[in-house]
Design a protein around this nucleic acid. Structure first.
Lengths: 136, 136
DNA sequence: CGGTATCCGCGTGGATACTG
DNA sequence: CAGTATCCACGCGGATACCG
């Protein structure tokens, strides 16, 4: 990976800036992370492997269709595994692969950033909205 | 770096992640990060403050409308600042606030994760697709 | 230069019904 | 239980035209 040394006058030391604009694959993965349910599913599976119905219950109001779709995408990307036990009725379990586990870390730091800064963001929004409510 | 095998016993009730499903604000920020252009804009502004046109040129094929919209959202959230200099013609500069700078870190780790694992993901996709191409 | 306004196609995702 | 199939509303985002 090429390292771009940036002369930051901020308190930040040198940071390597990964080029992302040229990798279409990066865009694709980011889209996956950014879609409506992926993060929630990954986090829920991060604690333990779960069956379909249980996963659905823990994921708030996700519909059956969206849960299936999201799981298929994540399975295709090698982030979750799927194990079918042919009992009657069927038992299907989902969990994170090692790749998925490794994704949990950057994802966690992102979620933690949000949790750390959500009040500041909320304040910023209020300030912005007040300043721009000249006329409605 | 190999994945630290975090083996969660099934009876382990404690969560290793902050709960995100109950915070609607978290969902909102994640949506922002996940939308088509935000990450690209933030990373581009991470290097240096930029004027509108220059930012547009560095952001590949983003349209004027989407760039404006994305910047307004990020400004509202307190992630980027906007400075207007009333020259003729107008000079408008955008940059990251300290909040935005702090977001750069988790974002970078996420992008780096993608860069580290994109080949593995690509392989996983090929394998999945081959296994599921029963008929086309 | 740095936007806003308008139109519109297309994909995302919800609701519902049905299957193995 | 764990899906698939179908229909459809909504909003994202592109293209284009115009403004201060």
């Amino acid at each position: 990976m090429e390292v771009t040394t940036l002369e930051h006058s901020m308190d930040e030391p040198t940071r390597l800036m990964p080029t992302l604009e040229d990798c279409s694959i990066t865009r694709q993965i980011l889209d996956r992370v950014g879609d409506k349910w992926s993060v929630l599913i990954i986090v829920n599976l991060g604690a333990e492997a779960l069956r379909f119905k249980e996963l659905q219950r823990r994921s708030g109001g996700i519909s059956q269709r969206m849960l299936t779709q999201t799981l298929r995408h994540l399975e295709r990307d090698g982030i979750v595994w799927r194990k079918v036990t042919p009992t009657v009725p069927l038992t299907v379990e989902y969990g994170l692969t090692s790749l998925g586990e490794s994704l949990l870390n950057p994802l966690t730091s992102l979620v933690e950033w949000v949790n750390r800064n959500n009040t500041e963001i909320a304040k910023a929004r209020i300030g912005y909205d007040r300043q721009h409510e000249t006329q409605e």
